[in-house]
């Protein structure tokens, strides 16, 4: 028999789940099959979505930027995690704590900061132009992916660092003793073993960048993006 405490806990979890997850999503799903004119059930909304090119473009833009951000955060987060967990870096705990800061910061604030630095009148933009580099500005695809990378790499970094630190180091040592160079050891042993964690971090990055509204609102300018289109058609 289960104790009353565990039954109560289970009940509480179910209530929270229903109220905060099931009901809102159900409402949205229900709304998607309704319009004011057509009554309780219609596929008109889906037909509209499929027929407007701008919706399609915002869909593909979002997915493309999400995938690209997932890849760039892997390129930044994984080597960083490897260095911090495997080398004797000073202030390891501090680095890990500080690296979570971008996740706490509202993303539109970091977008503003990047505009101050890399916008059309940004400080770095001016500097780059003054030394002859024809840097345009941060707006557009590049800027979105760039800001998402800076903002979301901690997901990959933290997931990977915990995978590296729970991984048995003697497995890497075994590879080295067998004649495998540090690089080959990383590619053939360490990387495949932390890959599941890297991918789950990258999945979080993908989802966060697809659902993100603040950054494309500020940096995307007129680019069609799912979250922005949803907001403007609301």
């Amino acid at each position: 028999m289960q104790s009353p405490f565990w039954r109560l806990t289970a009940l509480l979890i179910i209530i929270v789940f229903v109220f905060f997850l099931i009901i809102p999503i159900a409402k949205i799903m229900k709304g998607s099959f309704q319009t004011e004119e057509a009554g309780p059930f219609t596929l008109k909304n889906y037909k509209d979505f499929a027929s407007y090119r701008s919706y399609w473009r915002s869909f593909f833009n979002s997915v493309f930027i999400g995938l690209a951000s997932a890849i760039t955060t892997i390129l930044v987060g994984v080597p960083l995690a490897f260095i911090v967990s495997r080398w004797n870096v000073m202030g390891k705990a501090l680095i890990i704590t500080l690296s979570t800061l971008p996740l706490m910061l509202p993303s539109f604030i970091s977008a503003f900061v990047w505009i101050i630095l890399l916008g059309r009148q940004g400080m770095i933009t001016h500097f780059l132009r003054s030394i002859g580099i024809p840097f345009e500005s941060i707006y557009g695809y590049f800027g979105l992916i760039f800001v998402f990378t800076c903002q979301l790499y901690p997901y990959v970094f933290l997931m990977t660092i915990s995978a590296f630190s729970t991984m048995d180091e003697s497995i890497e040592e075994a590879a080295k003793v067998l004649g495998s160079s540090p690089l080959r050891t990383f590619i053939t042993v360490s990387f495949p073993l932390v890959l599941p964690s890297i991918l789950s971090g990258a999945l979080l990055v993908f989802m966060s960048s697809v659902e993100n509204f603040g950054v494309p609102m500020i940096i995307g300018e007129q680019m069609p993006i799912l979250a922005v289109s949803a907001y403007s058609s609301f």
Partner: peptide, 20 residues
């Protein structure tokens, strides 16, 4: 000389067999 150039074999307490 780094470990991968020493030409030694090593067997570890916790086996350290590559799990993948």
């Amino acid at each position: 000389v780094p470990p991968h150039k020493r030409d030694v074999g090593m067997v570890f307490q916790n086996y350290a067999v590559f799990p993948h």
